[in-house]
């Protein structure tokens, strides 16, 4: 066994290819024979990945889902930021400039609107749960933006690590829910063209959620959503500890 783990460790990326390939086979089989084509195979594959990550997290107590098993450490590489960004950029191959321009000003505005919306919702929830310190309320609001904005804002406002972990949890809930729920609500919110995909990416912001959700809905829309969501975390980190904190402090 020890020898197998060591062997898998030195060939991590190859093990990851086989592992993900197996998930895809199972997911597409489920899509065809159990869901009878009503749920797309990639949506099921992403849901299976999340389910395995939950199970692995409960089992190992680690933060990286199945990648915390030494046997599957390669998943941490294949599913890490480097390959994710590489593949997202590749999806832009074949995108037409005109489609990007069509969303225009509203596409660009969706990012600040999305950031402020998430902070407002998160801050309101924090207030409703009885928090009173403006720095702590801002941090929960930041977590409702993304799980990166949360800890960055919390650290610069100097709140306790308990509040920071709550904000990360809020951001993780958002990312997971966006991945799972997007294919379910896509038709109802008109998410079927490049313009609405750019607006959606800007409003949601969580890159993992947006790219996962669009992959499960319609892979052709991925580059448009990714284009706007890539600016969201940066803007959130910029506005959170500064402007939004000052506004929240003066309102309270």
């Amino acid at each position: 066994m020890e020898q197998i783990v060591e062997f898998a460790g030195t060939n991590g990326l190859l093990v990851a290819f086989v592992f993900v390939g197996a998930i895809m086979v199972v997911a597409y089989w489920l899509s065809r024979h159990v869901a009878r084509g009503t749920v797309h195979g990639s949506a099921i594959a992403i849901a299976l990945g999340l389910l395995l990550a939950f199970w692995a997290g409960a089992d190992t107590g680690g933060k990286n889902g199945v990648a915390d098993y030494p046997l599957l450490a390669g998943i941490g590489v294949l599913g890490g930021n480097m390959f994710r960004d590489f593949a997202i950029v590749a999806t832009a191959f074949g995108v037409r400039m005109e489609d990007l321009r069509k969303a225009g000003l509203v596409g660009a505005l969706s990012v600040p609107i999305g950031v402020i919306l998430s902070f407002a919702v998160g801050a309101a929830v924090a207030l409703a749960f009885g928090l009173t310190d403006p720095a702590e309320i801002t941090t929960i609001g930041a977590g409702a933006a993304t799980y990166i904005v949360g800890p960055v804002t919390g650290a610069s406002l100097g709140v306790s690590s308990r509040i920071i972990s709550l904000s990360i949890a809020a951001g993780l809930v958002k990312a997971v829910l966006v991945m799972v729920a997007t294919p379910l609500v896509a038709r109802r919110i008109g998410l079927d063209n490049p313009v609405s995909a750019m607006v959606y990416g800007g409003l949601m912001g969580t890159t993992s959620g947006v790219t996962g959700g669009l992959a499960a809905t319609d892979p052709k829309l991925v580059p448009y959503g990714a284009m706007t969501s890539t600016f969201y975390t940066g803007l959130g980190c910029l506005l959170g500890p500064s402007l939004i904190y000052l506004v929240i402090r003066s309102v309270l």
Partner: peptide
């Protein structure tokens, strides 16, 4: 792209998201 996103999903901290408490979930 999709297989890479599946790998990304499989390495998310889903356990922390699910067990992060009511306030985090509601937010």
């Amino acid at each position: 792209y999709i297989p890479i996103i599946v790998a990304m999903a499989a390495r998310q901290n889903v356990f922390a998201a699910v067990s992060g408490g009511v306030m985090a979930a509601v937010a």
